[in-house]
Design a protein around this nucleic acid. Structure first.
Length: 275
DNA sequence: CTAGGGTTAG
């Protein structure tokens, strides 16, 4: 809980636990304690502290586990040391203290993609596919598909989508939403519609994120009729537009000289208790 | 205790 407010309070508590305050029986830190702290450090963008905790963990002689190993990789990636993370992941099982699992791989895959190195991420995904520790799953593929789209590598993204299906990995709402978002941003609304229908046909339910992308796509093009249709479709599915949906929609209205309509939405949001 | 997707501004 202290981690929510940043690492300082957590650190104080941690040190107190280690000292076993006089007169109080305090449980010593366990592997879980270190895992939580390391993750907390990543959240507050202090990977250096997280790595220090890992060093401290090693000195206590406690055994690491899969979660701490993945969190260590997360700290390295957060510290912009993705190359070291790849190296540790592939060649330094001794440092991790265990065999990396799918969390470990997916963390590093995401980091490479965020760094516009999706091609390298693809190499890592192929390592996963060849080995027998953990084969790439829907999260791995979705991460790379999103990464390639973001880099404008539409062909590679599509190839990977087909490859995952060939491998029997079933696309889910995130996979489809990434594709739909990329198509919307490219202005290819007809294709986006096709994928929206395809996901429904495959009984994958679109969610608020999916519809936000569709609405964003239509309203950017000034196609208000179709955008309105998407609003209707999402609410008929019991989905409620959220702050992201409305912000995006209001921005489009303003850019098309419809600030009066945007203002109406703005005030109706406030009336409904939206901040 | 660990992994993937949506917006706006400068």
């Amino acid at each position: 809980d202290a981690c929510r407010d940043g690492p300082s309070l957590a650190l104080t508590l941690f040190n107190r636990v280690c000292r076993e305050e006089a007169g109080r029986r305090v449980a010593p830190p366990t592997i879980y304690t270190y895992g939580i702290l390391m993750n907390c450090c990543c959240h507050v963008r202090r990977p250096d502290l997280g790595l220090a905790y890992f060093g401290r963990l090693l000195r206590t002689g406690l055994n690491t586990n899969e979660v701490v190993a993945s969190t260590l990789l997360k700290c390295l990636c957060c510290a912009k040391r993705a190359d070291e993370a790849v190296n540790v992941l592939l060649h330094r099982t001794s440092v991790l203290g265990c065999v990396p699992n799918s969390f470990s791989y997916n963390i590093v895959l995401k980091s490479l993609c965020d760094d516009s190195r999706s091609q390298q991420a693809l190499g890592l995904l192929q390592v996963m596919a060849k080995g027998d520790d953990c084969s790439p799953g829907v999260l791995s593929y979705s991460t790379l598909i999103h990464g390639f789209f973001k880099e404008g590598e539409v062909g590679k993204a599509c190839n990977l989508f087909h490859e995952m299906m060939r491998q029997g990995v079933v696309p889910d709402v995130v996979t489809y939403s990434s594709i739909i978002d990329a198509l919307c941003k490219a202005g290819a609304m007809d294709k986006a519609e096709l994928f929206l229908r395809q996901m429904v046909d495959n009984s994958v339910r679109p969610d608020t994120v999916t519809y936000t992308s569709m609405i964003h796509g239509y309203s950017t093009l000034g196609r208000w009729k179709e955008a309105t249709k998407m609003f209707r479709e999402m609410t008929s599915r019991g989905l409620i537009p959220n702050i992201v949906t409305w912000n995006s929609f209001m921005a489009s209205l303003c850019k098309h000289g419809k600030s009066k309509e945007a203002a109406e939405i703005f005030f109706s949001m406030a009336a409904r208790g939206h901040k």
